[in-house]
Design a protein around this nucleic acid. Structure first.
Lengths: 346, 346
DNA sequence: AGTCAATGATTAATCGGTTAATCAAAGAGC
DNA sequence: GCTCTTTGATTAACCGATTAATCATTGACT
């Protein structure tokens, strides 16, 4: 069973050595092996006649490339919730991998019985099976990533990530600019006191949103006194009236969870958007909520990020050892909704 | 970069040969190599001290297993539509693969530039990368599958499939019994003339549904004269009144598309379910329709089927060459909805 | 004719394991 | 004391490629 045709079969058929066949098939740059045009032709003929395809495992062992891109996530790749979050990335990854002729290896085995994914399962690094690996997910282990980068392993992260040491390649959404765009949308509607509500700033994407807000306030000389951290125990129904009384007419909130909280507080108070205040959410929903309000928000270009990650990884693979990091930032599409409107007149 | 600790390092540290280390680490049944308890201990100590993990690539080359399960689909694995169809399978696959310590290889490269996936891309069979392969999808190539089975390649299909020659292992939903259950649900509500609407019967799952219907009618001496094939050009708004006039009080339809068609015909005629007639759909929705009526239907156990496929494949892998086929049929959960009710009294 | 370079290909080592064949030493049986 | 078996391990071939080192021809130039 399995594959029968080996490189030696082709070599025999073409009347040359295996090394020659290898050289012709791979056509490696700067090879010691030169092959004449006639021989080259005979080899290709034999390859086609026999239906030869290099054994990727052997090729990989010998240091060659095997056209496999690994995908590593620190959470399940197919989560029950966050379905909408991951799926577009996967679509992009598959499309681009397919276009480039690569297979995708999902490292699902990386979860030890106790839980908690790690590249080094029992000290083992299965990553070497793939030519390179694309990482995604929220709860990454930066130490581990830094080690991989140091070891020169070709990896790309989906989402901006800064490591304690070393620099990693990534594709990221431009949250800074997308957030700024939301801000100008609001100022365009006449809002002058625009508050920024956020949760604990735990990762780069949240930092970027905050950045976008801070730059906007700085640019418009508005001051940044309206950025507030909202923990889960903060009672928004109490704070909202105070904020409005203070003159705030619009809110930018970090995610749809916070958006929902603000909206229900608003409901409880008998307020409506965008009549009483405007509300914009910084990015489309993460989870699968059955019904979402038609937020004013922006679309995270997940599909493009997935495809971009493949492209960057192949760049890394093409270039000499230790090149990079390669980085790509993709703009988010502004998505107007019904939760923002003209600033209420005083 | 990459992995540094080789088996020879461990061998040196433990003062034994590489073969001995291999035998201890893998503990293969019926090995020629016997190792004493003390040596065994020394080897494990060295393994842990050095953090040794076998290189999966080398292991695979040497004929060992590489703990990779392939996934092959004849359509994109991550489709834009039919999103809800594939996803639960993938969840099941991932869960079980993870539990068993396997990685998942998606054969995305199998699509040649012109389109149309095939295992034999340019005559090559990349499948051999994996220990075995799980197939899923609607538009399978049975010739190709039969060839793989003949070659003794370990494969499992998700969904019942019968091949022109050879027998393939599969996990399937029990559509026959699920359909019969729907039928008795309807008879329990007093329906006596239960029609069966279907499209072109192109695959095993549709055959099974039909079977379930035919068996039910036979068992209840109802006759099978009420099974009709509904092509896309059939005007249901014309047929529905005729059927009702004829005494039909309930419909079982093959899928939600057909269900929607019947429902809109009904709407157009000013009829309502379940007052004027009952309607049950044979299986949960395939596509992602934003709003679906609360059908009376059954749930296809997709997650369990995915997990089951992994289990069957590993069985196939464990057992001697040419064993199997292994098959598993999983019951569907009945899901009562609002589209069925007591038979209207004459 | 003799030297040198270019061309065209082969040999052999290597990647990191697995495993059949083999062998040495110790204990059992007579 | 000698053979036989069992235990405990080693050797070496092999999996199917890649690639550095090497070698044999041929033609150009002096």
């Amino acid at each position: 069973m399995r594959q029968k045709i080996r490189i030696s079969d082709v070599a025999k058929a073409a009347g040359v050595s295996a090394a020659t066949v290898s050289a012709v098939v791979n056509n490696p740059p700067g090879s010691q092996i030169r092959v004449g045009a006639a021989t080259r032709q005979r080899i290709w003929d034999a390859v086609h006649a026999l239906g030869y395809v290099p054994n990727p495992v052997a090729r990989s062992l010998a240091g060659g490339k095997n056209h496999i891109i690994g995908i590593f996530t620190y959470e399940p790749i197919f989560p029950l919730e966050y379905h909408n979050f991951y799926y577009p990335f996967l679509i992009g990854l598959e499309e681009e991998a397919q276009a480039r002729g690569y297979d995708l290896l999902l490292f699902t085995s990386a979860t030890p019985p106790g839980g908690g994914r790690s590249v080094y399962r029992q000290g083992a690094n299965r990553l070497s099976l793939a030519d390179g690996v694309i990482f995604l997910g929220l709860n990454e282990n930066k130490e581990e990533l830094a080690t991989l980068v140091e070891e020169g392993y070709p990896i790309v992260f989906i989402g901006r990530r800064e490591l304690p040491r070393g620099e990693i390649s990534y594709t990221a959404a431009d949250y800074v600019q997308a957030t700024a765009e939301i801000y100008s949308h609001l100022t365009g509607l006449g809002h002058r006191q625009i508050a920024y509500l956020h949760t604990s700033i735990t990762n780069e994407s949240k930092v970027d949103r905050m950045q976008g807000y801070l730059r906007s306030t700085a640019a418009s000389h508005a001051g940044s006194g309206l950025a507030w951290r909202i923990d889960s125990q903060v009672a928004l129904a109490e704070r909202l009236p105070q904020w409005l009384a203070q003159g705030v007419t619009a809110f930018m909130v970090e995610d749809d969870d916070l958006g929902m909280r603000l909206l229900s507080a608003s409901d409880a108070l008998g307020l409506t958007t965008p009549q009483d205040f405007s509300l914009a959410v910084l990015g489309d929903p993460l989870g699968l909520r059955e019904e979402t309000p038609a937020w004013t928000t922006f679309r995270i270009p997940r599909r493009a990020m997935g495809a971009g990650a493949v492209a960057l990884l192949l760049q890394l693979l093409d270039n000499p050892e230790g090149s990079g990091p390669y980085r790509q930032t993709i703009v988010c599409e502004f998505a107007p909704g019904t939760t923002t409107g003209p600033a209420p007149s005083r």
